[in-house]
Amino acid sequence: MDWLFFIEVSLAGIGAGSLYALTAIAFVLIYKATRVINLAIGEMLMVGAYLFFALGAGWSLSWWLAIPMALVGGGLLGMLLERGVIRPMLGENPISVFMVTIGLGSILVGTVELIWTSAPRSLPGFMPDEAIFIGEAFIAPNTFWGFVIAAVVIALFLLLFRFWRGGVALRATASDQGAAWAMGINVPAVYSLAWGLAGMIAAGSGILLGAMSGVSPEMAMFGLTVLVVVIVGGLDSVFGALLAGLLIGWMESVVGVYLGGEYEHLVTFILLMLVLLVRPWGLFGSHEIERL
């Protein structure tokens, strides 16, 4: 066996996995704060990528201007979805809310196809493109920088949750909504904040993913694998999302190269089934997860 090749494949997989982890954090953030299973996360990610495409390629803004604007746009989209669609559904059956997010996803895909058609596009480059070597192993520059950026953003958010006062409000709301409200925390505002941050993170992963593999409405399928990631990691566990993201990214890459691309999803979903059989609440999730 060629170990160098194996390491290269693994590095590429972990790079892709870091995007799963980043998007999964957006998902977990929404689930923890509002108990909504947001199946539109892949579509939110896609819209973020298209926003960057429109600003960077369409209006030809430079990337350091277009990226922050696309992130803000993604955040606004998240807040808008929460305020307009999710909040009126509060207190309804979780299955209804979950179905609504599926519908939302279709609407977002449809809107994007109306504006930009379904033809694949490529994003303006914004990452350094000289080849990166770790030891002797080659790693594609987009994958490497994608991983670095994802890691920094994840670390930033973990610190924010831990030490920022708003992070305490977020975690308090996630832990006990009623008590948080009775403590003077503006719970509806926390909902908006959670969806806004999640929209921003999703847009960020969309831009990184677009830089690696181009932009098309099919990017939304990324959300399906993210769903597997969060179920494997445990719906309400940030740590689980990180670990499962890297694990599944690595597995897909290794399986794709050694067994063939058609096995990638097979292995992912076999893992999902195994985890559901043994630990239905995920590797790190808390036990009493709401039954759907």
Partner: peptide, 22 residues
């Protein structure tokens, strides 16, 4: 509220920080 309703995933001090929103 009845049943104490502390934020179980937060430390004691963070529980108090949450209360500063009042």
């Amino acid at each position: 509220m009845e049943g104490r309703r502390v934020f179980e995933d937060l430390s004691v001090e963070e529980n108090l920080v949450a209360a500063t929103y009042a």
